[in-house]
Design a protein around this nucleic acid. Structure first.
Lengths: 142, 142
DNA sequence: TTGCATCCTGTACCCGGGTACAGGGTTACC
DNA sequence: GGTAACCCTGTACCCGGGTACAGGATGCAA
């Protein structure tokens, strides 16, 4: 018996792999839960909420390090550090930058397609080809 | 002496690390060049063009595997397989999908910012918070 | 022929976000 | 008290695109 959810139950409820729980624990995203006498993890029900919060923040483009930061920003409420709002603003400009890089890429692909480019090597040798073999955007086509 | 460019020269000319040349050779993107008597690589000048082509295709969103494919598609010209154009069309739809995912993310961030959300845990507990703690887009927030 | 720059090989490591596996120990139910 | 089902630990591996390092061997000029 023993109060608390077992790893498998938490993982199931949050739609996450059990290994991921351990991984998040190591990364400091999920507090170490108490243990049964035999050493099995016993989570409080809030752990499931935390997992959902993590997954949501990830979907919004935050890395796990950033999520960890965001989470204990909430815990240590009172310090007048920048909160979620400020981080979200920074993240938004990152996302917008990424979008505009991708828009340049998409436009280039469209141009190449409508120009009928069908061979990279030929295009590179052809000064009429619209594919920009030098430049394009700045680095980091992540 | 000996005709041909040495690795360092090619790397320099293409703005690429020397290790990357070896890496591309292993990956099949760059043909194995001939060697000096002592075993040093001696590249033909076209190797630099090939590197520039690779970098351009990468910037357009193609993976190295796809670039390798694109390159020897050009070499084995005659087989009536889909060429660059068809691949570019597929890549374009991938890029467009990625853009619209990011637009949903950006919109969500904007909403959260203007709603004044400043604590993830509080937001998750608050039914008025506009952050979608369930759903958002489909998987794969790459 | 000496000396330094360049290059060679193989192997290991980096990022981010996990997943998989082996070889045990525990819990829960009948 | 047997026996599934579950969980524990540590460690290694996956993806993609490289980079770094150690310990030798060459290339080339003076």
């Amino acid at each position: 018996m023993s109060k608390g959810l077992r790893s498998g139950e938490v993982a199931e409820a949050a739609g996450v792999n059990m290994q991921t729980l351990r991984y998040y624990e190591r990364r400091g995203l999920l507090a170490e839960p108490r243990r049964s006498l035999g050493g099995h993890r016993l989570y409080p029900p809030e752990a499931v909420d935390t997992l959902r919060i993590i997954k949501t923040a990830q979907r919004l483009g935050f890395t796990l390090d950033e999520v960890a930061d965001l989470l204990d920003l909430g815990r240590r409420r009172h310090t007048h550090e920048a909160g979620l709002k400020a981080r979200a603003e920074v993240k938004l400009t990152e996302v917008e930058a990424r979008i505009s890089d991708l828009q340049v890429i998409a436009a280039t692909l469209r141009t190449a397609i409508s120009a009928g480019c069908d061979d990279l090597a030929a295009c590179a040798a052809n000064p009429c080809c619209p594919i920009p073999f030098t430049g394009l955007t700045r680095e980091d086509p992540t």
